[in-house]
Design a protein around this nucleic acid. Structure first.
Lengths: 203, 203
DNA sequence: CCCCTAATGGGTCTTTAGTTCCGTTAAGAT
DNA sequence: ATCTTAACGGAACTAAAGACCCATTAGGGG
């Protein structure tokens, strides 16, 4: 009689509980593609997932909780950094992977939704932050390798270089609403590389 | 009997209509600071502004329309580009003006709200797009002057340099949720400048 | 100053979001 | 296989969002 203080789904996470979670997160992505975060209704998600809306409200507090959980799920699926042998190609690969993510219909819609949710919800903000922290640390290794190969100056801040590549793509996607294509991504990688080679990321 | 197809507030825009608009936009900003875009309620805005909620629904379609109008209002107030005599200082001024905007309590909350709204609303997206198009064109002049002074290579894409300065700041604000301070802004300006001097923005 | 009507605002109605209750189903431990 | 109870789902309920109607107020042209 004391376990009702704990969150539902933690004591018996197998079988049905897992199936419900998968169905709800799938349905959430579908809804995000159709209506975006502001148009995300718990009711619609429950109906599409084929589960009772009581269940959705019980396990996820609200719309922000849903997308936060979605982001957490994606964090576990993030890929390893490229290791092609040259920084130039590694950074190009990084830019193209960001491009692929934000131009993918489902993934792109999900990312934008989490970002929208994170502007006013702590949980979503934390999920986002964690996701990119990991991603930046992972791809930062490419820079460390490049430094060891002598391709970049000693002391170059790898995390900052990786951020510098993604930033213009997200800026276009979210702020200026300009289209983001392959050429944009490649330019972004090249510019970060030029700056890095000239020591702009040292210190 | 035909003018009801036109939007309310366009035939008699002076006096009361203008006062109502000002009060509503003010109240909208207050609410955005408190609850963010996702928590923006037309009802609360009307109450805070001291106007009937019917009026708010009539003149602005919904929450997205409110923030879109707010953005349009801000677009008219945008400042002219700096002209200190050196690119270095002009770009630094640009970065600091972005910093000031996103760290200001009311303006920052408004910008984040419009960005959140723009992820799923065309009107808000258009307002954002227009705002930054203007801003980038305005500050791009600093780069043109620098090219004429011989500080940057002929053919440098000024708009892209300006975007490159803002991008990392918005990236941190919206995506990674890292704090954005003066040092971050200055680094961003410096890095874009280094890349530009080395021809990364030509072509 | 007067008139016409654009624009506002209170009140009411409808719809949708979110909660609660309780019976049913199925994990997972023995 | 059996039992306990975590977790689900339908239904009824409450609260809030949003739409509508019509009387009142005040721009702005004459």
């Amino acid at each position: 009689m004391e376990q009702d203080s704990r969150l539902a789904g933690t004591v018996r996470p197998g079988g049905r509980t897992a199936r419900v979670r998968a169905a709800v997160l799938e349905a959430t992505q579908d809804e995000l593609v159709l209506h975006g975060f502001h148009g995300l209704s718990m009711d619609a998600v429950a109906a599409r997932a084929g589960v009772g809306k009581t269940t959705v409200y019980r396990r996820w507090t609200g719309a922000a909780g849903l997308v936060a959980d979605l982001m957490t799920e994606l964090a576990d699926q993030s890929a390893a950094h490229a290791n092609t042998g040259t920084v130039e190609e590694d950074l190009r690969a990084n830019a193209l992977s960001v491009l692929a993510a934000i131009t993918d219909e489902r993934l792109g819609a999900t990312l934008q939704a989490v970002i929208a949710a994170a502007t006013c919800d702590k949980e979503a903000a934390a999920a986002l932050s964690t996701f990119y922290e990991r991603r930046i640390a992972e791809w930062g290794k490419s820079i460390d390798l490049a430094i060891r190969r002598g391709e970049l100056p000693e002391g170059t801040d790898g995390h900052e270089v990786i951020r510098a590549i993604s930033a213009p793509l997200y800026y276009r996607l979210l702020v200026t609403k300009e289209p983001v294509d392959k050429a944009t991504a490649e330019r972004s990688a090249t510019r970060a590389l030029v700056a890095a080679r000239n020591g702009a990321f040292v210190g």
